[in-house]
Design a protein around this nucleic acid. Sequence first.
DNA 1: CGTGAAACCCCGTAGAT
DNA 2: ATCTACGGGGTTTCACG
Lengths: 149, 149
Amino acid sequence: MKIDGIDKKIIRSLIKDARIPILSIARDVGISGAAIHQRLRKLEKSELIDSYQMKINPKALGYTTVAFVGVFLETTAVLSSIIKRIKEIKEVVECHYTSGNFTIFIKVLCKDNEDLMLLLDTKIKIINGVSKFETFISLNQQIDRQIHI
Amino acid sequence: MKIDGIDKKIIRSLIKDARIPILSIARDVGISGAAIHQRLRKLEKSELIDSYQMKINPKALGYTTVAFVGVFLETTAVLSSIIKRIKEIKEVVECHYTSGNFTIFIKVLCKDNEDLMLLLDTKIKIINGVSKFETFISLNQQIDRQIHI
DNA sequence: CGTGAAACCCCGTAGAT
DNA sequence: ATCTACGGGGTTTCACG
């Protein structure tokens, strides 16, 4: 998959604002709307474009606490059934199977620290196969971006 | 900030596909385009909507390794200057100031594990004030979603 | 890979309910 | 808060270079 300078400009525009009109990109770049359209179709088919998403601001919904939880599993634990249980926890936004100290690693959003404690206590701890976990609370997110194009 | 069922439908549509036409949402929901338009304006003003973003698939660019790095800082370290150095590393997509075991916690995307080793060795380790760090490689991401609406 | 034209569709606003 | 209507503009496809 090779992308040229024009593709990069299209991608950068749409990363900044996914709802920008193609014709507006076309004017910026200096080629016709039809050409941008054609390139976009190709980029979409190439799987370089995963999706176009509206991004919600969790703080506006009262979710002010971001935390990472490293989970240790018992050797007898069945991963797939644990993942299934974790998926049911709506506060979980990421879940990774990891090498390193932990077996799985999750990112959660909670309304406050008390809700986080409650979540750990009533939703994580009780999952069968979870032996222990370690929590890291994000006091401040300094960087949030996509891979550089 | 109170949102009703119609707002939720609008938000869910746009999380799934940020480029969907307002009129298409209108037909789904069963009210006019003008009404959807007005609701969207309100949602945007409320800061519930952070942005509309095209999401890139890093794998299509050859970035196959996802890792988290917990960094310990020396007590004398100046946070802001360290963050500044970290921002210059293009593979870093998230950076959090955390409570817990680590001082800062970052998420990185690399082409492969060798590139990750190189990054840790030549870009993280050498930052003034970094005393040590711990790496967790994501072997598989099982969940990637936004807060549930 | 690029173009412009044509047909179709959408957006944003205005004014009424 | 919703509607219809409208004018300006956007999207998509096409034949062609």
